[in-house]
Design a protein around this nucleic acid. Structure first.
Lengths: 212, 212
DNA sequence: GTCTATAAACGGATAGAC
DNA sequence: GTCTATCCGTTTATAGAC
């Protein structure tokens, strides 16, 4: 309400944690690092979030919640007018990740890494945020590609997710490998390339015989 | 030479480390965990590998070296006979990862995770193993898709790598999300799906206007 | 090459004053 | 809500005996 007021301690902790988790990883970031950056007290983490794990969960949920709501909002717009276009569905899924990346590249790097996290608890918590996304996008894909088995749709979305995560988390690796040719820039062109690649990949022949 | 002899201490350490690093991550695995599993002494790690980082590098190089040699061997077979087929090139790049995954799923999970590693030193060491791969596959792709700008080829390979890593590292996540519908099984079918998806994605129209 | 013992530092968590 | 002090376990790394 009071716009001039400084950010609250929980917010400062979340900001600092998000940044450090993204830069160094969860394990390599101590609560002492977080509180030092947030200019808060060490014990404040346990007061506000209960534990380090509680802080990690809060960092994830703060961004994932609006991200997935935006995905569903866009999917609604697409699905409302008749049979949905494959490319429009993929765009509804992928485009919001670019917005988050633009506003907060730290979080997207962090999110991409969680999917390959060894910590089962953390992975399960993360995946649980996607229950509605899975149901709704699956339904849309079935309508858009009715001749594909559902199993095939899941596999192809798996590849889409892999390409997506790699785009936002490893774009500096691409820049290095390409000798500086490929820069992610503001993300707009990268998103368009990503959507085009995925749409075309999704249209691979279903019998898998083509071109062999 | 002596086939009946037990494996050497360095090998036992590498085996144990590979397994634990894959299951728990680098940070969450202590040298005590490694030496306990290898039934070796704590100090043996420093004697044979100098440090924990030295051990990590050795674990990576032991598998990556033959993997990338196999990629180049297959690429040679493909490129020898005239203009290479796009699908054959991608197969030469992707198929060896399945072989490694079959023989040692632990390592592939580990390798996939390194690409999103926050530790810059480790990422740089990892990427340095791919210098020859980048040069040789780029040349083949230029021949196979001559009308595409090199920049576009790099981006598309970036997406291929993302899909590939996600396939071998997060396949259990797919199984969970798909409600048990999608299992990676022996990897053969997953590889075929992956190659088909990537080949088709690679053939996306170059102007990016199709279907919009 | 292998082992014990230990150094030196850092981790998350908590009790209790304010 | 904030802060200090502290508990207690763990970490990598090394010195030096065998």
């Amino acid at each position: 309400m009071n716009l001039a007021r400084a950010r609250s301690t929980p917010d400062l902790l979340l900001d600092a944690a998000e940044r450090l988790f993204a830069e160094r990883g969860f394990d390599a970031t101590s609560l002492r690092d977080v509180t030092r950056r947030a200019k808060a007290n060490l014990a404040s983490v346990h007061y506000h979030f209960g534990s380090k794990k509680g802080l990690i969960h809060a960092v994830i949920q703060r961004r994932l919640d609006p991200l997935n709501r935006e995905r569903l909002r866009r999917l609604d717009l697409v699905a409302r007018r008749g049979r949905p276009e494959l490319q429009a569905i993929l765009d509804a899924f992928l485009a919001p990740t670019m917005s988050v990346w633009q506003e907060n590249p730290h979080f997207m790097r962090l999110a991409g890494r969680i999917l390959s996290e060894p910590d089962r608890d953390l992975l399960d918590f993360f995946l649980a945020q996607f229950d509605e996304i899975v149901v709704r996008f699956r339904a849309a894909l079935v309508r858009a590609v009715p001749d594909a088995p559902v199993e095939e749709l899941f596999w192809r979305m798996h590849f889409v997710i892999g390409a997506m995560c790699h785009t936002w988390t490893a774009s500096d690796g691409l820049e290095k490998i390409s000798g500086g040719r490929c820069r992610i820039g503001d993300g707009e062109k990268a998103l368009r390339r990503l959507v085009d690649f995925c749409t075309s990949g999704f249209r691979a022949p279903l019998n898998g015989k083509e071109g062999r």
